[in-house]
């Protein structure tokens, strides 16, 4: 029996990219710390700091006053800017020392996963917001009326390319049998990596709808998938599901053709069943999508199925699938590395 993968295990598997993110934050904390000290005080303070920075070996050997006079300090910032810097720094250091909690999102039964993940990323986005506040304050352009909200949250849609490239990984624990994932596609870029733990899922292939050329998408029940997600340069999502779900890996590193990227290890044999309730429609659809992908990947005729996809045009997932099918014989327009360089 595959034992359930804990939030802690998933966090541990994705520690390296989280470390990268936190390092960048910690380094900025250091940088701002210097500004806060350096720009604050007087001639005398500079001399004292010079003496301190030269250490005990320098004491009595290097004249701190003369030394201080040689060192060009950064320009003195006005009090309002310093105050903003201080607040930005507080936001940043809270993240550095605050433990893994902000990197875990829990989604209740029936809740929309994309909404919850979006909110989680927006909350983490306050780190980038704080970096922007710091930059604005240093440039003298900080206006609290306009910019203070950056210290609360910054929605993913407003992250720039550099910020996305540093996005921290998230562990998302989904309760309930039917995770609603479709909107996640918008969040899977830059360095975003999501470990989705859905131990109660009854969906056979919830991630099939997210398969897209530059994104690592895999579902299954083993921790190894998280290691592959971690080491992939692409953004991605891995769902850890109960054993009976389908298992597949879509790895952009595989190549230009869908057939090289997609490996299906196991196809759940939950049959499309007319007698099932409307709620199960989505499950069928996912499973069908996976089948379509397999057909496309193996180069077999998918005509009949394409028509089914056409039928699904009314919803975005259907559109995605249709596009995928078309794409299957074309080189991908999106560069897998561009976001993660």
């Amino acid at each position: 029996m595959q034992s359930e993968i804990s939030t802690e295990a998933a966090l541990a598997a994705l520690e390296q990219p989280r470390t990268l993110f936190l390092s960048a934050v910690a380094d900025l904390v250091g940088e701002l710390g210097r500004l806060l000290v350096q720009d604050r005080d007087s001639e005398q303070g500079r001399e004292q700091r010079s003496a301190a920075s030269l250490g005990a070996f320098g004491a009595g050997r290097v004249d701190a006053r003369r030394f201080a006079a040689l060192i060009s300090d950064r320009p003195v910032l006005p009090p309002a800017a310093l105050e903003a810097l201080g607040r930005a720094r507080a936001v940043l250091s809270a993240i550095v020392t605050g433990g893994p909690e902000p990197f875990v999102v829990v989604v209740g039964p029936g809740e929309d996963v994309a909404v919850a993940v979006g909110a989680g990323l927006a909350r983490l986005g306050r780190v980038f917001g704080a970096a922007r506040v710091a930059a604005l304050a240093r440039a003298g352009a900080y206006r609290s009326s306009e910019h203070a909200s950056l210290l609360e949250a910054l929605p993913f849609a407003r992250w720039n390319r550099g910020e996305r490239a540093l996005a921290p990984p998230l562990v998302v624990r989904v309760e309930g049998p039917r995770p609603r994932l479709s909107g996640l596609a918008d969040l899977l870029n830059g360095a975003v990596k999501i470990a989705l733990l859905a131990p109660a899922s009854e969906s056979p292939a919830p991630l099939a709808l997210l398969v897209s050329p530059g994104v690592f998408v895999a579902q299954g029940s083993s921790l190894d998938l998280l290691e592959r997600l971690r080491s992939s340069p692409a953004p991605g999502i891995v769902a850890i599901l109960p054993e009976r779900s389908s298992r597949f890996v879509h790895d952009p590193a595989g190549g230009d053709k869908l057939r090289d990227r997609l490996t299906v290890e196991y196809l759940s044999d939950v049959p499309p069943d007319d007698s099932r309730s409307r709620r199960d429609f989505r499950a069928d659809e996912e499973q069908a999508q996976l089948a379509l992908l397999i057909a496309a990947a193996s180069g077999g005729s998918a005509n009949g199925q394409v028509e089914r996809v056409e039928d699904l045009r009314s919803d975005p997932a259907g559109l995605l699938a249709a596009w995928l099918l078309r794409e299957a014989s074309l080189p991908p327009p999106v560069d897998a590395r561009a976001g993660a360089a």
Binding site: S53, L54, G55, A56, F57, G58, R61, V62, F67, L70, I71
Partner: peptide
């Protein structure tokens, strides 16, 4: 003792 402290001074001077 100075082996310890000299590194602080060395780094500082190198940088400045």
């Amino acid at each position: 003792e100075e082996c310890f402290h000299v590194m602080v001074t060395a780094r500082r001077i190198a940088e400045a």
